[in-house]
Computed example of a mutant assay.
Amino acid sequence: MAHNEKPLMLESEEFADWKIQMYLHLITMDDEIMTILKEGPIKIEKEKSEWTAKDRRRNNLDNHCMRHIFKSLDRNTFGKVRECKTGKEVWEKLIQLFEGSEQIKENQKEQKALMAAESKGKLADSVSDDSLSRDSDHKVDTCFTAKKESEVFDLSFDDFTRDDLIVALNDMVIKYRKLSESLNQTISKSKSRQKFGRDIIASGQPIADGHIT
């Protein structure tokens, strides 16, 4: 059962390739190693004194399997599996260590990709909302400005001269004076009526049909 080919050294980044090549390396040593990896060491169902050379070889297959696997491991990885008692335990422990880690890494990559996609989506929505907000503000400002411009003098209009401004201001002053005079007249009339009423009450004269008797 000589097998002089050196097994491939295990590298964590290339575990999938190592597993295939190591599996082929082991089963080419002996067909029954396939069974050992799946079910554990072969049990010889007879007294040890009755074992034949084939029985001793079969009984020792598990040790050969472990030795070849151990030879492919670095010191750090060997420290994680050296307590295993059978080739099957070593094989399954390595799969758990490396394929489990690979699955975790893959899950983390998928999670990061989803987070990145979600972040990009939120950014796009934010930009879109901001654009809509600016457009809306611009429309409101435009409408408000147009409304104000319809109520005030457009000083930027080329035909609007200094004389036009003076005339407009004079008109405003005249209108203000008229309003002020009208208000003052109303106040004076109100005060006169109040005084007249107080004088009537003070004199004690009766009032008939709105006239003093």
Rank of each mutant, 00 (worst) to 15 (best):
S101G: 03
F160T: 09
L114P: 00
M9P: 00
K148M: 15
Q96F: 11
I212C: 02
R177D: 14
H138L: 13
V127T: 03
N107G: 04
K109D: 05
E181D: 13
K139R: 15
V81T: 05
Y23I: 03
D158T: 08
K109R: 14
D55T: 05
M22N: 08
G197K: 10
V90N: 03
L179A: 15
D30R: 02
D171S: 06
H64N: 08
V140Y: 13
S101I: 02
T28H: 05
I187Y: 01
R56I: 13
E11L: 10
S190M: 07
S188K: 08
S150Y: 09
L26A: 04
E181V: 08
D171K: 10
V167N: 06
K112I: 09
S156H: 08
L114M: 08
E47G: 02
Q108C: 00
D159N: 13
Q194M: 07
H25I: 04
K148L: 15
E102L: 02
A208N: 14
I166E: 12
F15D: 04
E102F: 04
K46E: 10
K122H: 08
T161C: 04
A116H: 04
T35G: 05
K48V: 09
E149F: 12
N107W: 02
I36M: 01
V127E: 13
F196C: 03
K175F: 05
T86E: 07
E181K: 10
T86C: 01
G79C: 04
F144D: 15
L94R: 03
M115L: 10
E149Q: 15
C143K: 13
E99A: 05
S192D: 14
I33M: 09
I166H: 07
L132I: 10
F157Q: 13
L179H: 10
A2Y: 12
A202K: 15
F157C: 09
W18F: 09
E106W: 05
D199W: 07
S119I: 01
K191V: 11
L123Y: 07
K48E: 15
T145Y: 10
S180A: 14
S150C: 05
C65S: 04
Y23F: 15
S119Y: 02
K43T: 15
W91S: 04
I104Y: 03
A53H: 07
T145F: 12
S126Y: 11
V127Y: 06
L169D: 08
E39C: 02
R198G: 01
D130A: 14
L24C: 05
N76C: 00
K54G: 04
I95S: 13
T213S: 13
R57Q: 10
K54D: 15
A16C: 01
I104V: 14
N107D: 13
I166A: 11
P7E: 07
D171R: 06
S156K: 15
S12W: 06
Q185V: 05
K139S: 11
K46D: 07
E45L: 11
D164F: 06
I200P: 00
P41F: 02
L132V: 07
K105A: 14
G40V: 11
E47I: 00
I95D: 14
Q205A: 14
L114H: 04
Q96S: 12
F78H: 05
S119E: 13
C84H: 02
Q205P: 00
M66D: 02
K93A: 14
Q108K: 12
I95K: 08
R198P: 00
T186D: 06
W91T: 08
D130L: 13
T35Y: 08
I36E: 02
K43M: 08
S136A: 14
